[in-house]
Design a protein around this nucleic acid. Structure first.
Lengths: 230, 230
DNA sequence: TTTTAAAACTGATAAAAGTCATTTACAAAA
DNA sequence: TTTTGTAAATGACTTTTATCAGTTTTAAAA
């Protein structure tokens, strides 16, 4: 049942790509495999982290809730990604929640296991640092775009982000089932505003929709729209 | 002329707080001391980083420019802080520019010196990682607030940020000379909008201004205003 | 298939913030 | 001190986006 880290699809691309065979075996033995239904909370804002999640399959949003109930998505997480490392490194409570956007499976590694690994394998520590630097860069990009770009452009960008993150290239056109609510929390705007611009994109033949499923027909046009102020 | 790292005011609080005496001597010998006038560019978006800056005195903004000329401040840097590490770790070009908000002095450490240090002193590497995690957390906060809070609240928050960052507690009330343009780039709004809310704050006795100098009289009220949606 | 609940969509209106034009205040130079 | 350029401040107006109220569609349960 538990996936074996030594045969894992992501063993050459994950944070643990520079682990030895023995280190991966050690991880495998001590980890805990979890299954989450779509919409289920993986960890919750304000709680203490107990370890690190490594997504085996599924889609996850990391988001924060304002007191007025509004949600802002900070990061999208895909299979092969690690989740929950920031609070672990800072040794603070989670500042955001992680919620499954789809049925999701994740391996869980305890703090002590994680700390032992980064204390003994310099390469893993270095890879972790690079990952932090990359995520910081991505977050800064988001911040700047949120401040400077109008909603239409940010929506185009969000659709491309979804495609770049979750496209498995199994179909000619990328499709994703996502609620307008979730999409508006990624863009940082109101649900109705997202719907209006999606309608525009539909009229322009850039996307098509069926229920909550969105299919991207012309990502080239989305790229053009999103880059207007770059 | 060159400040000595072993006697530096920030030797117990900077990124290099866990360096040995010899490591600090090594840094001192090989570093380069630079002086920047207010408004001068320390490094520029798109350029390749050659090393790390450690601010000895002054104030620095890290910001990105949109093609329409609009600027967004990503981070405020004070004396004792390091600057330019993200691009160094990721080994990419600078994605933002650093500009002196005041006359500023900074020490410059070459890439090789920096890499050697984090390769040989695990504590420094670990401190660097923690710093990255903290800055990432701060940036996520900024992102969420930008998406959820109205300008008035973000302005109150920005004024508190300036106070928390640059207050030397030499006077009863914190004062800072900052252009409305710079302030609006921190808040992520238009110059005129900032001026209007500053006028409101003045009428309410929260701040006073003289030219471009802003004095915070009631930071308690600012805190209340900024937290309305927390 | 009918029912029903939830989510997508649409329209009207309000609120927030941006833009442009102009005046006023400040600070540096003559 | 007067001049002059720059930045702050204010006012009028526009644009963008949010909010609210409603209708239609979708998909799942009875």
């Amino acid at each position: 049942m538990n996936p074996n880290c030594n045969t894992c699809e992501f063993r050459h691309s994950s944070l643990f790509k520079n682990c030895t065979h023995d280190e991966l075996s050690q991880l495998s033995e001590n980890k805990c495999f979890n299954v989450y239904k779509k919409g289920q909370v993986i960890f919750h804002e304000g709680n203490r982290p107990l370890g690190l999640f490594c997504i085996f399959d599924g889609k996850v949003k990391v988001s924060r809730l304002g007191s007025d109930g509004k949600e802002q998505v900070i990061r999208l997480v895909k299979k092969g990604d690690t989740l929950g490392y920031r609070s672990l490194i800072e040794n603070t409570k989670y500042s955001a929640s992680a919620i499954a956007l789809d049925d999701t499976q994740a391996c869980f590694i305890t703090i002590s296991e994680f700390n032992h690994l980064i204390d003994t394998n310099v390469k893993v520590a270095s890879d972790l640092m690079k990952m932090l630097a990359k995520v910081l860069g991505d977050t800064q990009d988001k911040l700047v775009h949120l401040a400077m770009k109008p909603v239409r452009e940010r929506l185009a960008e969000a659709l491309l982000l979804l495609k770049n993150t979750y496209d498995d290239k199994k179909a000619e056109h990328f499709s994703i089932s996502i609620s307008r609510e979730d999409l508006s929390s990624i863009v940082g705007t109101a649900k109705e505003t997202v719907i209006r611009f999606l309608s525009e994109f539909k009229e322009e033949g850039i996307i098509s929709t069926k229920g909550s499923e969105i299919t991207i027909l012309r990502s080239d046009k989305l790229l053009k729209i999103s880059s207007l102020y770059d």
